Amino acid sequence: MTFGRIAVKAMVTAAVATSLMGAGQAVAAGAGEPLDSYAGVGAWAYSHGTNGAVAIADTDGDSHAVYTLYDRRYNTGLRLDNHDGNGSTKYSGMDTANYVRKVTACLNIQLNPDRCGLDDRPNDDR
């Protein structure tokens, strides 16, 4: 009888641990998928790893500043600007609980409409 109780407790403990791991993954759906957006050759917005921060890189010496429009788990419509020129990268603050859910790279074209790349979101198969 004692062996049976120990075996049942072990199975119940394993089942509970497995279900909690699945629940944790469901809550964090979208965190951990690399997100990348490009606006031509001039701007690259990305969030990799835990998606706790977003970055915007200026990748062309074209005299245009770059920025990213991004969403986090609990905030939408955020913007991060980079006015430091070709080869520079700006980073947002790190917050893995309020992880990045969308990035869009944009070129800030003076006196004309800005040019933006495609949005990248979790599970969009890009």
Results as ranks from 00 to 15, higher is better:
F3D: 15
F3W: 09
R5N: 15
I6L: 14
I6F: 06
A7H: 09
V8E: 15
A10G: 06
M11T: 11
T13R: 13
A15C: 09
T18I: 09
L20G: 00
L20R: 08
M21T: 12
G22K: 07
A23K: 04
A23S: 11
G24S: 07
G24H: 07
Q25D: 11
Q25M: 14
Q25R: 14
V27P: 00
A28N: 10
A28I: 05
A29N: 10
G30C: 10
G30W: 08
G32E: 09
G32F: 06
G32K: 05
E33K: 09
E33C: 05
P34K: 10
P34T: 11
L35I: 10
L35S: 03
D36R: 10
D36H: 15
D36Y: 13
S37D: 07
Y38N: 10
Y38Q: 12
A39F: 04
A39T: 02
A39V: 04
A39R: 01
G40K: 03
G40V: 00
G42R: 02
A43S: 13
Y46N: 11
T50L: 08
N51V: 07
G52S: 13
G52Q: 04
G52C: 14
G52H: 02
A53V: 07
A55R: 08
A55S: 15
A55T: 06
A57Y: 00
D58E: 07
D58G: 01
T59W: 00
T59L: 02
D62G: 01
H64V: 02
H64A: 09
A65F: 04
V66Q: 03
V66G: 01
V66I: 06
V66W: 00
T68N: 04
T68G: 05
L69K: 11
D71Y: 02
R72T: 12
Y74E: 12
N75H: 15
T76L: 07
G77I: 05
L80F: 07
H83M: 09
N86I: 03
G87N: 06
G87W: 08
G87S: 07
T89I: 13
T89A: 08
T89V: 14
M94C: 12
M94H: 15
T96M: 04
T96D: 01
A97E: 08
A97H: 03
A97W: 00
A97Y: 00
N98S: 09
N98W: 00
V100W: 00
R101G: 07
K102G: 01
K102T: 10
K102C: 09
V103S: 06
T104L: 04
C106F: 06
L107C: 03
L107M: 13
L111Y: 12
N112K: 15
N112S: 14
N112M: 14
N112P: 01
D114C: 12
D114L: 08
R115H: 15
G117M: 07
G117W: 04
D119H: 09
R121F: 03
N123T: 09
R126W: 05
